[in-house]
Amino acid sequence: MNAKTADKIATALIVTIAAIIILILAGLLGYILIRGVGHISFDFLTSPPETIRAGGGIGPQLFNSLFLLVLTMIITIPLGLGAGIYMSEYAKPGRGTDFIRLVVEVLSSFPSIVVGLFGLLVIVNLFGFGFSLFSGALALTVFNLPLMVRITEQGLKSVPREQKEAGLALGLSKWKTIRSIMLPIAIPVILTGTILAAGRVFGEAAALLFTAGMSSPRLDFSDWNPLSPFSPLNPFRPAETLAVHIWKINSEGLAPDAPEIAAGASAVLIITVLLFNMIARWFGRYVHRKFTATK
């Protein structure tokens, strides 16, 4: 076989594989959307679920998912950024950092059900936070953090060395160089990583079963005092998220329209993740333009 034929075969093979992947993805997305989109209505998105009767919605669950996302990110982003900056710029390479990196890798490949059980034992029971959004956010932080750390580290490492040197050579301090020269360049990479991390929060169910709980109190959407037990903003109340809700009604739903609700909720979940990705991407580009003044 001559080189030209080999090249053609390789090209054809790679194109075929790519096509198969796109087909699978489009098929999955299409299936979920076609089954679910018909069920989505304003009422469905805002009303609370029904246990036995038909016509329940997913309002509180959708809100819980978004709120949990925000809570988790509030914990994850500063910790992840800090640790990532340390690993990339401050830690002396050697056994210590290699060990930290190994721990981070292991942490990120933990099965989420194990993280959930750990959360139940330690966060829910030992620390006494109970089934709550806060417990859920802490559990999700456990496996979001490694991703965040790695992404920050990679983002900073991808900044050309000359940029860093140029900052230092001007007599900028190390921190100023990192903050004002390197981080702006690394931000699109870091943002992409944050989106990935956020996507996991949104879709996660197993780790939340035993931490955020499988029920929501009767939320009073007119009460925005975070300390009141029925306020949606109270982080110490139990909260069933969208993904957990899908799992629950699929396995033990009693309402006659449970399959439709599950399909609709799945579609909402997918669409939200897609939206979130697109908005964050756009935002990443916007921030990059803003920080670097490139056109």
Binding site: Q163, E165, A169, F291, A293, T294
Partner: peptide, 20 residues
């Protein structure tokens, strides 16, 4: 070194303007 580097300018092989 931070103070020192103010007294010494440096120019590299490849132009490396800040992304600003």
């Amino acid at each position: 070194v931070v103070l020192l580097r103010q007294k010494i300018g440096m120019v590299w092989q490849r132009p490396n303007p800040f992304h600003k």
